[in-house]
Design a binder for these strands. Structure first.
Length: 706
RNA sequence: GCCGGAGUGGCGGAACGGUAGACGCGGAGGACUUAAACUCCUCGGCCCCGCAGGGGGCGUCCGGGUUCGAAUCCCGGCUCCGGUACCA
């Protein structure tokens, strides 16, 4: 609600308005009766309001839309640049955009006065159309039935459909109802006259709001035909079936065209382009693509939002507020509560305006924008948060963006993440930015479940962080949350798991406390540790842990395995300390350095405890210390454990100097009694012998007996 | 229905073609303690052989396949989770 920010949201809206990408139009829109406002399609989940869960209704209203559908294809195409996005999110967006290839075909009314287009993905079945359906909201319905005996019944059917909730309208299993208009349309392909019905399973906002019904090859049309005694005609016959074989259900499978005039004999996949070409040559239709995506309805009848910067002039229509008059500020009002029209309309001073174009009296738009509009570009404003001459500066924004790594919940998949992509493309088209995608990489973290449900305020199963912090400390909580499992996956909260992380911090604390204060130790030289195997092992472990934790954090987002690795290091140090085996000078140095390393690696996960321990070890400000670097010399093992397999089964392990030649390893392996016995057992009495030796240097020998 | 993801101990999970079960939770046994808590030690996939040290077989949802070698790759199926769905 900061005018310094929403000024530029309005400015961007004006840019879209000028390009025809923001428009006000009447449509059947989603209405939440509790929040008393309209909603975008993306904000209706299972027929209910995303915010309050109330069943959503359809209302015929004039509202502001952003024309995201103009970008449907580009939103799909540019997904190829989103290589680091989770497949799940890309799939959700793909489904939401819902591209399908098909054709448009024009049907002319019986009186020759109206042409009504349909969209179909099965133009090959055009000869099978035996009736024609209009959505209840279709603008042609009124004209078709005016003055006819069917008029009253049809109007009543349309009214009933308007009253139904969105959930009811779109339930797949409800009976196929409809009302006959008494009128007919002519099939463009054969001039056949077929009856026109109004049916509520036809949706006004997909395709053209009208369909050709092919009961022989569409399940829904078949059900409608059965319910209303309409004819069913076969136009596709599977391999080996007769052209006139009766249909007991809709056949949606493959086959060849029958009863279809010039298309007869063609396979389905050839008939589709053939009929599209035929229609196009005669001006009766063409191949086209349909999308499920709807335009983004952004007007809201709420107070808290960005005022839409438009003035309605009786003479000029909707006119954008000139850029130098922005921002249009939210007016003070007495009552913020939703009541079906915008609370802004209660302020006469706000509503009264003059037309920026003609200077005549006019009225200000009183709706505010969906909050998702603000969040569609905030990441660009971060590059110039106080800039007063524009939303951002091109060279700066091009330097910083796209965002290298975005993190969020999967619930944004077809909301924020789709809208932000759309905005970015528009701004790129306008020339304000030089890139087409806002977020190069996306990481979606999982949700926490507890007591069998997602942990959420509305479910009442939230574990209050304050209580955990009170009992175990904030670092324990951080550590546990990150340790629960892969960050990208959902995880189950376990109360006792928290205690485990507290125990770990306590153990590390005691490890540090048992050492002298003093000063930070240098990494001991590898030569100084040769005489103390445990000291050398600990020093190696410390360096290996640095390498693993660094990789887990930076490359894998795998925090739980990073923490596990630190725990392994601490466990080994604790063990050495407890056994008193690290009492040599080198041993003490190794222990000291390993402890410091563990503390330093723990810092990102448990910053308070790590900082405190760092001081106890003689350090100062851990947060300005460089991230540890692994010393490669310690990562090279001089002895290795080599696994010996016979026919792929583990039979023995040998400790061997690193870097032995394959032949030497095989020779050592074959001398081992257990290996020899296994070879003999595998060979049995038929004198089989080793026919192949597979060696992975320093790791494995597999002797194949046949 | 369509699309995506996932199935590994009692539980969360590890292992990104090479020792399955790291790390942690829970469990059992032991040490310390007057007792307990804390802490420490030991055990810990299943089955079989052995008094024991130890040894063998089976095992990553099921069935096939590729490979010297498969939790991992391929084919078929089952189950669960998520998205979407009267979208023509």
């Amino acid at each position: 609600a900061d005018p310094g920010y929403y000024r530029w949201t309005q400015w961007l809206f004006v840019q879209m308005f000028r390009r025809g990408l923001a428009e006000r139009r009447e449509a059947a829109v989603n209405w939440c009766p509790v929040d008393q406002t309209v909603l975008a399609n993306e904000q209706v989940v299972d027929g209910a309001c995303e915010r309050c869960g109330s069943p959503v209704e359809l209302r015929q209203l004039s509202q502001w839309f952003l024309r995201i559908t103009e970008y449907a294809q580009r939103l799909l195409d540019d997904m190829s640049d989103l290589v680091d996005w989770p497949e799940r999110v890309l799939t959700m967006q793909r489904n939401w955009i819902g591209r399908s290839e098909g054709a448009r075909a024009l049907f002319r009314t019986d009186d020759g006065e109206l042409e009504i287009p349909v969209f179909t993905t099965r133009p090959d079945t055009l000869f099978g159309a035996t009736f024609f359906l209009l959505a209840p909201e279709h603008p042609a319905v009124g004209r078709l039935v005016a003055g006819r005996p069917e008029e009253a019944a049809v109007r009543e059917y349309v009214r009933a459909a308007a009253r139904a909730s969105v959930a009811d309208r779109t339930a797949a299993d409800r009976p196929k109802t409809g009302a006959f208009t008494g009128r007919g349309v002519r099939n463009p392909v054969n001039d056949e006259l077929i009856p026109v019905w109004v049916a509520d399973y036809v949706l006004m906002d997909y395709g053209t709001g009208a369909i050709m019904a092919v009961p022989g090859h569409d399940e829904r049309d078949f059900a409608f035909a059965r319910a209303h005694g309409l004819p069913v005609r076969r136009v596709i016959a599977p391999e080996g079936a007769a052209a006139d074989a009766p249909l007991e259900e809709a056949y949606a499978g493959d086959g060849r065209l029958v009863n279809s005039g010039f298309l007869d004999g063609l396979p389905v996949e050839e008939a589709k382009p053939a009929i599209a070409t035929w229609l196009e040559e005669r001006g009766l239709g063409e191949a086209t693509v349909g999308y499920r995506l709807r335009d983004w309805l952004i007007s809201r009848q709420r107070y808290w939002g960005v005022p839409i910067p438009i003035v309605h002039c009786p003479a000029c229509g909707p006119v954008a507020v000139p850029e130098d008059q922005l921002p249009v500020l939210l007016p003070p009002v007495d009552d913020y509560a939703p009541k079906g029209r915008s609370p802004l309309a209660a302020s006469p001073d706000f509503v009264r305006a003059t037309c920026p174009d003609c200077g005549g009296p006019a009225e200000r738009e009183t709706d505010t924008m969906d909050t998702f509009v603000d969040s569609s570009w905030y990441f660009l404003r971060y590059t110039a948060p106080h800039l007063s001459c524009g939303p951002f500066e091109r060279d700066v924004v091009d330097y910083w963006l796209p965002v290298d790594q975005y993190i969020g919940g999967v619930e944004h998949a077809v909301l924020h993440l789709l809208y932000a992509r759309f905005f970015t493309k528009v701004l790129n088209d306008v020339g304000l930015i030089g890139f087409r995608e806002p977020f190069a990489r996306l990481f979606t973290q999982g949700m926490i479940h507890y007591l069998g449900a997602k942990m959420s305020k509305s479910k009442g199963n939230v574990v209050a962080p304050d209580e955990i912090v009170e009992r175990y400390g904030a670092d324990t909580l951080r550590l546990y949350i990150l340790f629960m499992g892969p960050a990208a996956e959902d995880a189950e909260w376990q109360d006792q798991g928290v205690e485990g992380q507290r125990r770990f911090l306590d153990r590390l604390w005691r490890l540090v406390a048992a050492q002298d204060g003093g000063v930070l130790a240098q990494r001991p030289a590898i030569e100084a540790l040769r005489d103390d195997p445990l000291a050398l092992e600990l020093a190696r472990k410390a360096e290996a842990t640095v390498a693993k934790v660094t990789q887990d954090i930076a490359e894998r987002f795998s925090f739980h395995t990073a923490i596990a690795a630190i725990q392994e290091l601490v466990n080994l140090a604790t063990k050495g300390q407890a056994e008193g085996t690290l009492s040599s000078e080198g041993g003490r140095a190794a222990l000291r350095h390993a402890t410091q390393t563990a503390v330093s690696l723990l810092f990102p996960f448990a910053p308070h405890v790590a900082s405190e321990l760092w001081e106890a070890l003689g350090g100062e400000r851990l947060w300005v210390e460089p991230w540890p670097q692994a010393d490669e010399a310690f990562l090279v093992q001089d002895t290795v454990t080599v696994v010996v397999q016979v026919n792929g089964k583990l039979r023995d392990r040998i400790e061997a100097p690193a870097g032995l030649a394959d032949a030497e390893l095989v020779a050592i392996a074959r001398e081992r009694p257990r290996v020899a016995a296994a070879i003999e057992a595998a060979g049995g009495r038929n004198g089989a012998r080793v026919v192949r030796e597979v060696v992975v240097p320093d790791r494995l020998v597999n002797l194949v007996v046949a």
